[in-house]
Design a binder for these strands. Structure first.
Length: 660
DNA sequence: AAACAGACTTAGAACGATTATT
DNA sequence: AATAATCGTTCTAAGTCTGTTT
């Protein structure tokens, strides 16, 4: 304990922790080649060692239990844990996993009981899977106190790594944990998906800190790979991963001054583009007709990046998923439909599909036709003279630091501002938030930010739809009942009763069935639950005849509905046999139908759009701050706690008149 | 100018916590 | 009170872009 204190305590010199905050946004700072003067931290947290499974939990091969060496068992366990996921069904994932698994198995001497494992199809991971599931269940079942205790222990273990001292200021570290070994979960059709991501040891890790900083002790029996003192970079720790041989970094958290400054600079750069956008646009429109092919390609690419918010699109290697951006678009990704319609259909970042049928500028259409002319064919680059570095160099002629991605930030924030400007300053806070989210959604759609539908999405959609249908049915029943009570109502307002014929017999029957079934379930559940409770309280149990009497009531209701269907005579509780009361009920139902269908539509519209990425990375947070101030919406309705910390600079610096 | 290494931002999935619903 | 739906956070993969080397 004391030791930890000491090494971080060497923060030394400067300010106290806590109150006097560093308001970097109030200071002028243009040079960011040097990121810090002093940097001190306690290194990184390593994942726990592997704990072998109990001996009765085994991989089965061709029906026989396999005694795996722990190193191989760990890898098999990674697969077993994913057994019910899509990964485990992916043949590439299976093959990559199995190759690496066999290699580990061989390296550690094969199965201890001599079982020769060679075919994936003969492996049965289900026992391992069940055990892992059970453990998860048990963890969930723990009492609140036990959970609290575990959390406390976890926090204590993490404490030394959560913070660092940067120029004497205490700042939060982002990902202070070394990534644990696992199977690589590449997105889309990644050729390496399923490969073993190996365990990282201190020997693999480079620490970055100032020269006078105390070097934290590596875990017992280990040494650090290297200690570096590079103050031109932001990272605290780094290691090389074995899947694509690139680096992983430990850096500061999103709420740190460093990240905040970068963020601020990003948005200021995007705002700077305002000054140049008109000339850039008129230039690329002119260059669409240039005699030089390269210039035409630059013009079309800039147009696509500006108008459709495409990414730059760098070249990718053979052993990554085949995804593209603007410069790497190929022949088959663009379909031309005269006179001006273009269909884009390709996989972008994270293998998210970009599909848009759009009208484009006449000359853009012409140029795309030229770019696709024979001998070009599927597989060929559309922009064969172009790559992001050429494009970015061209953009930098207009504005220092301008690159393709700045257009995404610029257009996203511009769109948000324009959308927010359209919102009338009226109505409830909830209504204003709905409007804000609609503006946010416009940005997310521009950037093609998607999310895959959750597991239960289709089901919950259907449920909501059925509910709506049932409201409608109930409403019609009440209207019919009104006419039974007083036929003259029909003449008074024929329109009001028009919808009583809207549901067919079949539809009504289906609704009856659902309503009845739900009632039955309700009573059955009520019965079991009540008895469990009574058993616990040592009270007398409800008898089966009690349940039966409830269910008989439901049967009765079922008969009644069937009867209604036959005779078209509605039977209602005596208390409801009153025209005014029924009309009030109808009114209530109409309200419910209105709100439910709006919610339903909202849910549907939102189901495949992810709002968070644009909120976190593209929309200048000052826009949201200004919106909240002007429209009197509490900021915490728009920004979560984490986002309020990340955007502290924006919250404290934007006044009501701020414009992007 | 191409290829590569390095360092940073942006991205959706997974998971855990919280809130709404029954 | 249990269960389902939603929200918020964590995790790490997958981009962009710069600078260096050949």
């Amino acid at each position: 304990m004391e030791e930890k204190e000491e090494s971080v305590g060497l923060s030394g010199t400067c300010e106290e922790d806590g109150d006097d905050e560093f308001k970097w946004w109030e200071k002028e700072n243009n040079d960011d080649s040097v990121k810090w003067v002093t940097l001190r931290h306690n290194g990184v947290m390593f994942p726990p060692e592997y704990e072998p499974l109990p001996s009765h939990v085994r991989l089965y091969y061709d029906g026989k239990a396999v005694e795996l060496p722990p190193e191989a068992e760990e890898v098999a366990g990674f697969f077993a844990a994913l057994l019910e996921s899509d990964h485990a069904k992916n043949p590439v994932f299976q093959r990559n996993f199995f190759n690496d698994f066999l290699e580990v198995l061989k390296r550690y001497g094969g199965a201890k009981n001599g079982v020769e494992v060679s075919s994936f199809d003969k492996c049965d991971f289900s026992k391992m899977f069940e055990y892992l599931q059970l453990q998860r269940e048990q963890r969930k079942q723990l009492s609140p106190q036990e959970k609290k205790q575990l959390k406390l222990e976890k926090d204590q273990l993490e404490e030394p790594f959560k913070y660092c001292y940067l120029d004497g200021r205490k700042e939060q570290v982002g990902n202070f944990r070394i990534e644990p070994p696992d199977l690589f979960r590449g997105r889309g059709a990644h050729p390496k998906t399923g490969k073993l991501k190996r365990r990282v040891y201190p020997e693999d890790v480079v620490l970055n800190m100032d020269k006078d900083a105390a070097i934290p002790d590596p875990p017992a029996g280990h040494k650090w790979g290297e200690i570096r003192h590079d103050n031109t970079v932001q990272w605290l720790c780094m290691w090389r991963e074995n899947i694509s041989n690139s680096f992983k970094y430990v850096r500061l958290a999103a709420n740190s001054s460093q990240k905040g400054m970068s963020d601020f600079k990003k948005f200021e750069k995007a705002r700077e583009l305002k000054k140049y956008i008109d000339i850039i646009r008129s230039d690329y429109r002119r260059s669409l007709k240039s005699k030089v092919m390269l210039e035409r390609q630059i013009a079309v690419a800039t147009y696509l990046i500006d108008v459709f918010a495409l990414r730059a699109g760098g070249e990718k290697s053979e052993d990554e998923a085949d995804t593209v951006g603007c410069c790497s678009l190929r022949y088959e990704h663009v379909t031309l439909k005269p006179p001006f319609t273009v269909i884009f259909d390709f996989l972008g970042k994270d293998s998210i599909r970009y599909y848009q049928e759009v009208e484009v500028d006449k000359q853009v259409f012409k140029n795309l036709t030229i770019f696709k002319r024979p001998p070009k064919q599927p597989g060929h680059q559309l922009f064969d003279r172009l790559d992001p570095s050429i494009l970015n160099k061209h953009l930098q002629n207009y504005m220092p630091g301008l690159t393709a991605k700045v257009f995404r930030t610029y257009n996203a924030s511009k769109t948000m501002q324009d959308q927010l400007d359209l919102i009338p300053n009226e109505g409830s806070v909830t209504e204003k938030i709905v409007r804000y989210n609609a503006a946010n959604r416009a940005v997310a759609i521009l950037c093609n930010h998607q999310r895959t539908l959750g597991r239960g999405h289709a089901a919950s959609m259907q449920k909501a739809n059925e509910k709506l249908e049932e409201y409608q049915w109930q409403k019609i029943r009440y209207k019919k009942a009104i006419l039974q009570l007083d036929e003259s109502e029909l003449k008074k307002n024929p329109k009001y009763f028009k919808e009583i014929k809207d549901l067919t017999k079949e539809e009504q029957m289906a609704i009856h069935k659902r309503v009845i079934e739900r009632e039955r379930e309700k009573y059955k559940r009520k019965f079991t639950r009540e008895n469990e409770k009574r058993k616990f309280d040592k009270e007398e149990l409800l008898t089966d005849s009690q349940l039966k009497s409830w269910l008989d009531d439901v049967d009765e209701l079922e008969k009644q509905y069937a009867q209604e269907l036959e005779t078209d005579e509605i039977v209602l509780k005596p208390t409801l046999l009153n025209v005014e009361k029924l009309k009030a009920q109808v009114e209530k139902l109409e309200q419910r139908i209105a709100t439910s269908s709006i919610q339903l539509k909202d849910k549907e519209d939102n189901s495949t759009v992810a709002l968070s990425t644009s909120k976190i990375s593209y929309i200048d947070p000052r826009l949201s701050v200004v919106f909240c101030k002007k429209y009197n919406v509490p900021l915490e309705k728009i920004f979560t706690k984490a986002l309020r910390e990340k955007f502290k600079w924006a919250i404290e610096s934007a006044d009501e008149n701020w414009r992007f």
